[in-house]
Every structure is written in C-alpha cells, then in structure tokens.
Design a binder for these strands. Structure first.
Length: 217
DNA sequence: AAAAGTCACAACCGCCGGCTA
DNA sequence: TTAGCCGGCGGTTGTGACTTT
C-alpha cells in the first residue's frame, strides 16, 4: 500500500492565515527545517493541511522573499520569458530569485496582460493583434484599457483615434503613450511608495522576524 | 452616506509525475 | 508490481480594499 494521506481535511482551518498561525509556522520551520510537509502542521500545532502550510511558507513567509512591486525591467524579463516558456510560472519564477510563481502569475494576469493588449500585442501568442485581424476586438481592448487602466488618457486617446486613419498608428501611439506614463504612479496613483506602505503595515512588518528570533528561537 | 462595481492578490482546487511501502 | 501518497504546478476563486455612482 501507499503512504498515509497528507491530511484528513476534517476539522482543518481554511482561509486567510492569522498572525498567530504565521508565528507558529515560522517558528517551527526556522527551528526544525522542512522534512515532511505532512508533519509540519501537526508538529507546529496548526489546524492546517501540509499543503496549505507549504503554500504559506513559499509564497509569504520565506525570509528570502523579495518584497515590493515588480520593476519595469522585471516585467520586461517576464514578458520575454513568457514568450519562450508560456504559462510555466515556476520556470519563469526561477529566473527571479526571491519572487514566487504565484506572484508572477498574479502580476501577469492583472497587469502585464493589460499592458500587452494596450500595446496591441496578444498576450497568448505575443504576436501583434492586428495580425489576428480583428479590429473590433482591438477597439474594445483599447477602450477598456483606456477606461480602466489609464482613465486620465481616455479623452486624449479618443481624439487621437478619431484623427487616425491607419490601424498601425494606434499601436504606435499606444506604445508612446505607455512609455510616457508607465510609472509606479500609474498603478498606485497618489501613493508615494507602495512598497514602503506595504512594509509599514502591521501584518507585513518584517520586524516580526527579529521578534521571533528574540522571543521564540 | 451607502450601494455597486472593480481590482489585486492570497489561498484553494485538482491534476500530474515521481516516489514509496 | 502497483496502489496511492507527496510535492509541485497552473488555473481559478474568494475576499478585502478601493473607487465610482
């Protein structure tokens, strides 16, 4: 017969992790390391399944995680790697020490896909959308991006679009517009430094690790 | 001021290949 | 040999924060 199941799922806690659970998991792993995820929750005193503990550690608690928004250079690298590897997020994440596959996947789905569509590039094939020859969809995408991602540019772009006669000039103007406005402020308007805000939040305070070492280790 | 809509991301689900009892 | 677990992966969903109406 095979091994024992990793968890029976009965009576196990689900949903967002509490600070107390994070403390327990961190404390256990930093003291004992990881031998078997199935045993981690039991030994750490957590009502979670091993899989959930593994995910929490890898995506959130690992001390070597790189925090903060992905840079433009990182985004460009992700796009390049995605064109070669497709949706192999773990392979892509392997090129970014301290970044997780989940983080890169989320960033792709929420930001980069929109960025590529805005530039007239199909995020699946990495080919120009005009090659797909569907101007109607392209029009919808441009409108959607202007409204949702760059609302301050909507009027300006609409006027440009009306003046434009060639479909390729839409992409060129998009590219220029994007290059001129692609700053952190575009995504986090009014926030001086979202990374610093994130660090300063009580849940994400990395003084926690010093605290843990001082008080638990 | 409150309801509705939107967004970002943490967490879960289910599948797969490799491993093991 | 093989049934079934483990760890890893990618897709999807849930939820809290924020924005718009």
């Amino acid at each position: 017969m095979g091994r024992q199941p990793c968890c029976d799922k009965i009576g196990l806690k689900r949903g967002p992790w509490t600070i107390e659970e994070d403390h327990k998991l961190m404390n256990f792993i930093l003291n004992n390391g990881i031998q078997c995820w199935r045993l981690v929750p039991k030994l750490a005193g957590l009502m979670r399944c091993g899989k959930s503990c593994r995910l929490r550690w890898i995506n959130y608690l690992r001390p070597d995680l790189k925090r903060g928004a992905l840079t433009e250079a990182e985004e460009d690298m992700i796009i390049k790697l995605h064109s070669q590897l497709g949706n192999r997020w773990s392979k892509i994440a392997g090129h970014f020490p301290g970044r997780t596959d989940n983080e890169i996947k989320n960033h792709w789905n929420t930001r980069i896909k929109k960025k590529l569509k805005f530039l007239g590039i199909d995020p699946l094939t990495h080919k120009p959308i005009e090659e797909i020859n569907n101007d109607e969809i392209k029009q919808q995408v441009s409108e959607e991006i202007n409204e949702k991602v760059m609302p301050e540019k909507t009027l300006e772009y609409t006027q440009e679009q009306q003046n434009s006669t060639s479909s390729s000039s839409i992409n060129e103007s998009n590219l220029e517009m994007f290059q001129n406005s692609h700053t952190l402020d575009m995504y986090y308007p009014g926030v001086e430094d979202p990374f610093q805000n994130w660090i300063a939040s009580p849940i994400h305070n990395w003084d926690l690790f010093d605290y843990l070492q001082d008080n638990f280790l």
